[in-house]
């Protein structure tokens, strides 16, 4: 398990997360992203999406993972709720997520996240687990 918090940025919003494992960090980061988009909307794990991603290193993998979630939302209004990640390494991620279709009439409209930026993007391992931060463009 892990935690996430938002940090201050003049124009945009930063998400900082911590997880005991890399998988927990990645899940927390996406949970932070979803809170920005849909606040505390009640979302149910009604549909599944499978994915397999790879990147050169952990920071780029985090970026790719969050971009994928944002792409689902932008094109299908799909937001993941539960995560069954079979494999998360620093260079690859494979698994299934289950989530809901966001309905502006029924759910809480938060912010439109335009993109996940590379500015101050960070993933690092410390004694207590994995830490990461990202700034999203609002």
């Amino acid at each position: 398990m892990g935690t996430y918090e938002f940090f201050e940025h003049t124009a945009d919003v930063g998400i900082r997360a911590h997880g005991a494992t890399l998988e927990a960090l990645f899940v927390c980061m996406v949970q932070g992203l979803i809170e920005l988009i849909a606040e505390d909307s009640v979302l149910k794990p009604q549909q599944a999406r499978s994915l397999q991603l790879s990147a050169d290193e952990a920071e780029s993998l985090l970026l790719t993972w969050m971009q994928e979630v944002l792409f689902w939302f932008s094109t299908e209004r799909f937001l993941p709720v539960t995560f069954e990640l079979d494999e998360v390494t620093q260079t690859s991620l494979r698994g299934t997520v289950r989530g809901d279709i966001f309905d502006p009439a029924r759910h809480v409209q938060g912010r439109e996240v335009k993109a996940i930026t590379r500015h101050l993007l960070q993933v690092r391992q410390e004694r207590d687990g994995w830490h990461g931060q990202v700034i999203v463009d609002i």
Partner: peptide, 9 residues
């Protein structure tokens, strides 16, 4: 000007 990402806004 204010803090953006990459280049400032």
């Amino acid at each position: 000007i204010h803090w953006g990402y990459g280049a400032p806004i």
